[in-house]
């Protein structure tokens, strides 16, 4: 079977869950080959990728790759596409992943499918568009299919493979060195699961009222082992950092369970959470539009309902 390149998403040397999902998906359509671009590669990373089915691991670990915005990673992939003629390239549909895919598409004169929620036979992709209102099947008909896949679209399943390593040296072009990262500012991480990866997300909005009050959202999240999210009203007010914003201009999440407290459900917020499998809404206004897509809703004061819910969950443990 022919090779499918899967670009590895990694932070601090750790392979992100979405990569394991992409490897699982690639396995159903060909032979997965992981592509590591940037510093931080380790034996632990190698073991993880092999555990989830990477037959091969292409490693381009030069520090330089991490020093510039997006372009170096696209050059690494373009180099491999030219050398290996893979059947397809899968990239996580994150902000940066989409940009890498876009540049790669131009470089290789190949079509690109954005934000697929599934990929089937013949690399026909499934997209969920217009805020989840329409389902589309689409495909690439020129060049190597480049498909960005939304995190949480496939359940990762381990299936050990060889994980044969192959070093890749790519001489970066001047154009790839045009936008230099001079400083990385880490705002806060915490021990909670990553927002786009989490099986459960608990989000708070303007109704939460203050940064301190977000503690009650965090307590519920911790009781459930969930990630914390926020509406734009909450991030704009400075109650929670921007990288936790869910929505049109924040993260798109697709967890098994999404709990929203004190969020009205503006279209821009819904755009980022509408494909969640189960949605629970807590809001004191019975007319809040988010109730329209709730599987379960409580009309009430979140300061009463959320702590009671947290307590009930702790009791049942």
């Amino acid at each position: 079977m022919s090779e499918i390149l899967v670009l590895v998403e990694h932070v601090d040397g750790d392979v992100k869950k979405v990569t394991l999902e992409l490897l699982t998906l690639a396995r159903s359509l060909g032979t997965p080959a992981a592509v590591w671009a940037g510093p931080g590669y380790s034996d632990a990373a190698k073991a993880r990728l092999a555990e989830y089915g990477a037959e091969k691991i292409y490693v381009a670990a030069a520090d330089e790759i991490g020093d510039y915005v997006v372009a170096p990673k696209a050059e690494v992939l373009a180099h491999l596409v030219a050398e290996r003629s893979p059947a397809a390239v899968f990239v996580a549909a994150t902000g940066e992943g989409k940009e890498i895919a876009g540049r790669l598409a131009v470089k290789t004169d190949s079509g690109v499918i954005s934000d697929a929620v599934g990929v089937g036979e013949g690399f026909v992709a499934e997209q969920s568009i217009f805020g989840g209102g329409v389902n589309v099947h689409s495909r690439v008909n020129k060049g190597t299919p480049i498909i960005t896949v939304r995190p949480n679209s496939t359940a990762p399943v381990a299936a050990a493979a060889a994980g044969a390593e192959e070093k890749v040296e790519v001489a970066l072009s001047d154009a790839a060195r045009a936008a230099r990262i001079v400083e990385r500012v880490v705002q806060e991480k915490g021990a909670r699961p990553e927002l786009t990866e989490a099986a459960i997300v608990v989000s708070g909005g303007r109704g939460v009222g203050s940064g301190e009050n977000f503690a009650i959202i965090e307590k519920l999240a911790d009781a459930l082992g969930a990630a914390v999210g926020a509406s734009r009203a909450a991030t704009d007010a400075g109650w929670y950092p921007h990288q936790f914003q869910v929505g049109q201009t924040g993260k798109t999440v697709s967890p098994q369970l999404y709990i929203a407290a004190g969020i009205s459900g503006a279209i821009q917020h819904r755009a980022g959470m509408q494909t969640s499998k189960t949605i629970v809404v807590i809001n004191k206004d019975a007319e809040a539009p988010l109730f329209e897509i709730a599987d379960f809703g409580v009309v009430g004061d979140l300061f009463q309902v959320v702590p009671q819910l947290t307590e009930e969950i702790e009791k049942r443990k």
Partner: peptide, 27 residues
């Protein structure tokens, strides 16, 4: 370079249950 093969309206979400908090909403 890419094409839409087919498309269809997503099945509507099944209507959920909305209750009013009478002191036991969290439970």
């Amino acid at each position: 370079w890419s094409e839409v093969v087919d498309f269809a309206a997503a099945p509507p979400r099944a209507a959920g249950t909305v209750i009013k908090d009478e002191g036991d909403g969290g439970a």
